[in-house]
């Protein structure tokens, strides 16, 4: 069994995140850059399966700028066996279409059984890469799984949707995405961190993958404008002197909110 986990570098949601107002791109200097937590959970799922099933290969795939090596190594330190880092200046500001084409090309180079991703990234909130990959790779897709069972040749799980909960299954190879309901990641231990330094980390460019960033046949999404919203100002702050509940009720009634 070969499992590929997609991980993505994002600005940490526990800090301030900024966009460059001239380029519209994420200001990578402004925030701490981390692996998106949902990607770590995806990796945890793969590693848990590998722990219980000898002969399982877990590999990381990430499309990220040059400096992302450190976060990818963290995934190796958690226990993934190898990693592929797709990095190319022409991918700067890539939209979902180009991102999906590039990742699909990287996945076509390996014989995978299962691709696991997070359901939605915290920066772009797109949540569509898994679907795009399934379409491009011609494999079944099961998204937004809140529990997952991997078996030989198949994957199944529960899929909460607006109106209820589905139980779904697919034959392998397949693409799945998972939700935050899955267990959080293990911490890399010292042995893992040391071992990660010797694990294979392959770097690929668009040329290696035979992808052209400015393919005229594909429509691309472009940003037209970007503006920063003025920060919200604080209003009234009172200290409870025994009547704050009544004052708050008056505020709500006055503003027709009660």
């Amino acid at each position: 069994m070969k499992i590929i986990v997609l991980v993505k570098e994002v600005p940490d949601t526990y800090g301030d995140r900024k966009l460059n107002l001239e380029t519209g791109l994420a200001d990578r200097e402004a925030s701490e850059i981390v692996i998106d937590e949902i990607g770590e959970r995806a990796l945890e799922l793969a590693l848990t399966y590998a722990d219980a099933n000898a002969g399982t290969e877990v590999a990381i795939l990430s499309l990220a700028p040059e400096g992302a090596t450190a976060t990818i190594r963290k995934g190796l330190a958690m226990g993934a066996g190898s990693a592929t880092h797709v990095c190319d200046e022409a991918l700067r500001g890539a939209d979902l279409g180009l991102t999906a084409e590039t990742l699909a090309a990287a996945l076509r180079r390996v014989e995978f059984d299962l691709v696991i991703t997070g359901n939605v990234s915290t920066d772009g909130s797109g949540g569509m890469i898994p679907a795009m990959l399934a379409e491009l790779l011609d494999v079944p897709l099961a998204t937004g799984l809140s529990s997952v069972e991997i078996s030989d040749g198949a994957v199944s799980g529960t899929r909460p949707v607006e109106s209820g909960v589905q139980k779904v299954s697919a034959n392998l190879p397949a693409v799945i995405s998972i939700t935050e309901a899955l267990p959080g990641p293990r911490f890399p231990n010292f042995k893992g961190i040391m071992a990660a330094k010797k694990k294979p980390l392959e770097m690929l460019t668009l040329a290696d993958l035979g992808i052209t960033a400015d393919n005229p046949d594909a429509a691309r999404s472009i940003m037209l404008t970007v503006a920063e919203k003025p920060p919200r100002a604080a209003g009234v702050k009172i200290i409870d002197e025994g009547d704050a509940g009544e004052k708050l009720a008056a505020f709500l009634i006055e503003n027709r909110l009660a």
Partner: peptide
């Protein structure tokens, strides 16, 4: 996502 990948259309998400 699937439709855009199939038709090579551009996505504006969320």
């Amino acid at each position: 996502g699937r439709y855009a990948a199939r038709s090579r259309a551009a996505i504006s998400a969320d």
